[in-house]
Computed example of a mutant assay.
Amino acid sequence: MDFEEHEDHRAIRQAVREVCRQFDDDYWMRLDAEHQFPWEFYRELAKGGWIGIAIPEEYGGGGQGIAEASIVLEEVAASGACMNGASAIHLSIFGMHPVVLHGSAELKRRVLPPVASGDLHVAFGVTEPDAGLDTTSISTRAVRDTDASGNGGYRVHGRKVWTSKALESDKVLLLTRTTPKDQCAKPTEGMTLFVANLKDPAVRITPIAKLGRNAVASCEVVYDGLWVDEEDRVGEEGRGFRYLLDGLNAERVLIAAEALGIGRAALRRAVNYAKERVVFGRPIGQNQGISFPLAESHARLHAAELAVREAAWRVDARMPAGEHANTAKFLAADAAFKAADAAVQTHGGFGYASEYHVERYFREARLQRIAPVPQEMVLNYLAEHVLGLPRSY
């Protein structure tokens, strides 16, 4: 067992930190308040090739693994960008994974190079208001049809929610039902993935008002007869759910890395404040009521980091990683929230003030315990698939 960080990984951290130093906490606070997408930040990362780090080299990407992608997202979040910065690039970094694995050669040739360069913006359309985490119950339908020229394709009708970055994106990786659930042998069958157009008159996008991460909008998207060419289908019809499962462990690792970064940012600000803030003639960090929660946060973040590193390593080595990826997500989300909560408490009343930024960290750390899967569903997985307990849902 070797816990020394690879030289390449250290180089990635340093390079991403250099980019992030150009965008301070005030930048992120302003964009969050104004609901403005961080275009300058996105373009700087794209210029450095970081957007395409996990896309194969043959399609213009960096050809790196989940370990490297997780480092990029961790450092972005740790810079103070938190989820606003990470969400701006997350889907471009890994959202196209099903296309990489299952898309036709022609689809990969058309889509992956502009995604890797940062020129093509993509969103992810899975969640629906009446289905939630019960993905097999989605009702968005794609029905085979022909266009005016006689070309084969599909007409899509339905509604998705929590489609992040829909306002800025050109394309969406869209999960639909091509066969009704009651006509399938298994509920996971009959779902199909497409790389569909978002900038189309048949698509209506409405931002959802929410607690935080407001620089990157989360949207309701209504599809009213959207035309999708057959060539834009990912893999075989009816196997879309299985294609999504291929990327779940990697997604858990990336989300865990982002949570880890938020926790690091919160702890850094809290420690600095505890050293500088003097009350009753001494720095407040001298008081165990302040120092112990921060020390505990450090310990929790360190433990979560080890879980994230192991899970990323297992995913890249193509080893079983369900237990490890879910554990990493659970521990990192929990550690980040506790660190952000301790940071707010350390600042006292000023923790509630926007100018100290920790209230923004707190809001974004809270999200990590909900999205993309809540802590309870992670525990469901571990209870059933690791401990062998009866399925609870």
Score class of each variant (00 low, 15 high):
7 E>I: 11
12 I>S: 02
18 E>G: 08
18 E>L: 00
19 V>Q: 13
27 Y>M: 12
29 M>L: 10
29 M>V: 14
32 D>G: 14
35 H>M: 02
39 W>V: 06
44 E>P: 11
48 G>V: 02
54 A>H: 06
56 P>S: 02
57 E>C: 09
60 G>E: 05
64 Q>F: 03
67 A>K: 04
67 A>L: 00
71 I>W: 10
72 V>L: 01
72 V>D: 00
73 L>M: 05
78 A>E: 09
80 G>N: 09
92 S>R: 09
93 I>C: 09
94 F>W: 12
97 H>C: 03
99 V>I: 13
102 H>Q: 13
104 S>D: 06
109 R>M: 12
110 R>F: 03
111 V>F: 00
112 L>N: 03
114 P>V: 01
120 L>R: 08
128 E>T: 06
129 P>M: 01
130 D>R: 08
135 T>I: 12
145 D>I: 06
147 D>F: 03
147 D>N: 13
147 D>P: 04
151 N>R: 06
151 N>V: 07
152 G>N: 10
152 G>K: 13
153 G>A: 07
154 Y>I: 06
156 V>S: 11
160 K>E: 07
161 V>L: 13
166 A>D: 07
175 L>E: 04
176 T>W: 06
176 T>R: 08
189 E>D: 15
193 L>I: 05
195 V>L: 04
198 L>E: 09
201 P>V: 02
201 P>W: 10
204 R>H: 10
207 P>D: 01
208 I>W: 00
211 L>C: 13
218 S>P: 02
222 V>G: 05
230 E>I: 13
233 R>H: 04
237 E>F: 03
239 R>W: 05
246 D>I: 05
247 G>N: 02
259 A>V: 10
259 A>S: 14
268 R>H: 11
268 R>G: 06
269 R>C: 05
279 V>A: 05
282 R>E: 08
283 P>L: 09
287 N>V: 00
291 S>F: 01
292 F>R: 15
295 A>T: 11
299 A>T: 12
299 A>G: 09
301 L>G: 02
303 A>S: 13
316 D>Y: 00
317 A>Q: 11
317 A>N: 13
318 R>H: 14
320 P>E: 02
321 A>N: 01
330 F>A: 15
331 L>C: 03
334 D>A: 02
336 A>Q: 08
342 A>W: 05
343 A>G: 07
346 T>Q: 02
348 G>P: 09
349 G>D: 05
355 E>H: 12
357 H>Y: 15
357 H>N: 11
366 R>W: 02
371 A>M: 07
377 M>Y: 15
379 L>H: 03
380 N>Y: 08
381 Y>W: 12
382 L>P: 11
393 Y>M: 05
